[in-house]
């Protein structure tokens, strides 16, 4: 990151210095107060709640809750639905982040070409990324309807599935077959690849043209240039996208709630195939009123995110290639 000009050094202890300190504390205290009240205090409350069996309907305020030691942690660690949710969370995160990144690189390369109206294409390609998740899921749920949806229509035309207008035909059931629900959600996540793609685009533009010129002189074709220059120089961007993407995917909530029928219903979808750690924690907390258990579960998610982030940072040394600083 570009480092800007620093504040000019001032004499310590002078009146001016004291003034500056006051201004510094004054301005940053806006954030500091917010941090203490809205972040630090809740963390402490979270720790407290996770060792109680707080049920807001029964107990009222959280300080009336009865402590129950580590039993919340014991309960969820022994809960096979929890481990199923762990698996689903990893399945979705790795699947969607992998797929989105694999698709985004060629798209970014394409949008890095000198084409007429390239800004319009970039604008359009990025558009889905900012669309509200609820409406997006509704559109795709309709497109994935087993017999009347667009996907079914295509599959029937391609003779991959039988004709749904026949009495005995059972089309692919993207919405209630537990083996197909998660793949459908993962496929849909490619629609909003704009975020990832933009990072690659930025990465591509940071690659100096001189590398390609040198390669062209050596007679390397386009693929070889991509393989030997673009991809290695893009690894920092890939790393960044994978880390940020995984952290985001682990915390995906809206998509799963809406895909499995909206909040207030069952958060897991068919056979819990769409149950993730976040939605399970929400279900325990806000549907079942088991706030202590839900908070303990959320710490489990925290740990999982931590593990994956550490793996990423440790693993990066093997494959991320950093350009020398200019």
């Amino acid at each position: 990151m570009a480092v800007g000009a620093q504040a000019a050094p001032v004499d310590k202890g002078s009146n001016q210095h004291r003034q500056e300190m006051l201004w510094g504390y004054g301005l940053t205290s806006i954030w500091l107060i917010g941090f203490l009240v809205f972040s630090a205090a809740p963390i402490i409350i979270a720790l407290f709640i996770s060792f109680t069996d707080w049920n807001p309907i029964r107990d009222g305020a959280f300080w009336n809750a009865r402590g129950n030691g580590v039993s919340n942690y014991k309960i969820f660690l022994a809960d096979h639905r929890y481990w199923h949710a762990v698996w689903n969370t990893i399945y979705y995160s790795v699947g969607s982040v992998g797929l989105v990144n694999v698709v985004s690189i060629p798209v970014a390369v394409l949008l890095n070409q000198k084409l007429r109206g390239i800004n319009i294409y970039r604008t359009i390609a990025y558009l889905p990324a900012i669309m509200p998740a609820v409406a997006t899921v509704l559109i795709f749920r309709m497109m994935f309807q087993p017999s009347s949806g667009f996907i079914s229509w295509i599959l029937t035309r391609l003779h991959i599935q039988c004709d749904p207008s026949q009495l005995t035909c059972n089309p692919y059931d993207w919405l209630s077959n537990p083996r197909l629900t998660m793949p459908a959600v993962i496929l849909v996540s490619t629609w909003a690849l704009g975020q990832t793609m933009l990072i690659y685009l930025a990465g591509l533009q940071g690659i100096s043209g001189s590398y390609y010129e040198a390669a062209a002189i050596d007679g390397a074709n386009t693929w070889e240039q991509f393989r030997n220059i673009t991809l290695p120089l893009l690894t920092p961007a890939i790393f960044f996208n994978v880390v940020i993407g995984l952290i985001g995917a682990f915390q995906e909530f809206t998509k799963f709630i809406i895909w499995s029928g909206g909040a207030g219903g069952f958060s897991g979808g068919p056979s819990d195939s769409l149950l993730t750690l976040f939605t399970y924690s929400y279900e325990k907390g806000f549907e079942d009123n088991l706030m202590g258990l839900a908070t303990a579960m959320a710490f489990g998610l925290f740990v999982l995110i931590g593990i994956f982030t550490v793996i990423n940072f440790v693993g990066q040394r093997r494959w991320v290639f950093y350009q020398e600083e200019r």
Binding site: S147, S148, P164, N170, P171, Y172, L175, S176
Partner: peptide
């Protein structure tokens, strides 16, 4: 209808 047919 089967689950697959019921959606629509």
């Amino acid at each position: 209808p089967t689950a697959q047919q019921a959606g629509s």
